[in-house]
């Protein structure tokens, strides 16, 4: 702009360009009808946001409601946009910003395959115990561990297993629910 920009009287900054991005967990309650997942996913991807994890399953058989849990990244205003846009979709009943709720529990399940023999195998077993990971498949030269927890715990487990012969990972994506007697 030419000349000196008039100082904003607005209580909000005129530009929102320099907001920091953060991670957000959104739980979306939807009518379980054909195409509903495509609608939700394409809305987010059409706006250029990446979905870091996604879980979906019917949670209320009688009312045909499903719960979709999405982990995505963006600036706070972009996340607000995504929430408002999701709220406009006809089959979407509710959008819960789990990240903003202090009393939300977050869980994820991972299956981790470790191959190897000898010393590293013993070490893998020992670490698995600390993380309360269960060995659900065992051969002479491999394990499959099942581990649940918040994402940081799973990430930490995976990092520790990496040098011990980790060959494959499968993760469910994040689930969330509210603590206490109240429900969403």
């Amino acid at each position: 702009m030419t000349g000196n920009a008039a100082k904003s009287l607005s209580v909000y900054p005129v530009t929102s360009a320099e907001e920091a991005t953060g991670e957000s967990i959104l739980a979306v309650i939807v009518d379980n009808e054909p195409g509903v997942l495509a609608r939700v996913v394409s809305l987010i991807s059409a706006r250029g946001y990446n979905i870091e994890s996604l879980t979906v399953a019917e949670t209320d058989v009688e009312k045909h409601r499903s719960r979709i849990t999405i982990v995505t990244r963006g600036t706070p205003s972009k996340i607000e946009q995504i929430k408002a846009q999701l709220g406009r979709l006809v089959p979407v009943r509710r959008v819960i910003d789990v990240t903003k709720e202090t009393d939300a529990i977050e869980r994820e399940l991972a299956l981790v395959k470790i191959t190897g023999r000898g010393e590293t195998r013993v070490e893998a077993m020992r670490l698995a115990e600390i993380f309360r990971a269960r060995a659900i498949d065992t051969t002479h030269n491999s394990f499959v561990f099942e581990v649940t927890g918040a994402r940081e715990k799973i990430n930490a487990f995976i990092d520790l297993m990496r040098p011990l012969g980790l060959t494959e990972i499968s993760r469910t994506g994040v689930l969330s629910i509210r603590r206490g007697p109240e429900s969403d």
Binding site: M1, A6, S8, L9, S10, V11, V14, A17, R88
Partner: peptide
């Protein structure tokens, strides 16, 4: 956008929250 009506307070009335 960053030079749009810099000195005003703004009220927005719309049926679409997004």
């Amino acid at each position: 956008l960053d030079a749009f009506s810099p000195g005003s307070r703004k009220i927005h009335i719309d049926i679409d929250p997004s």
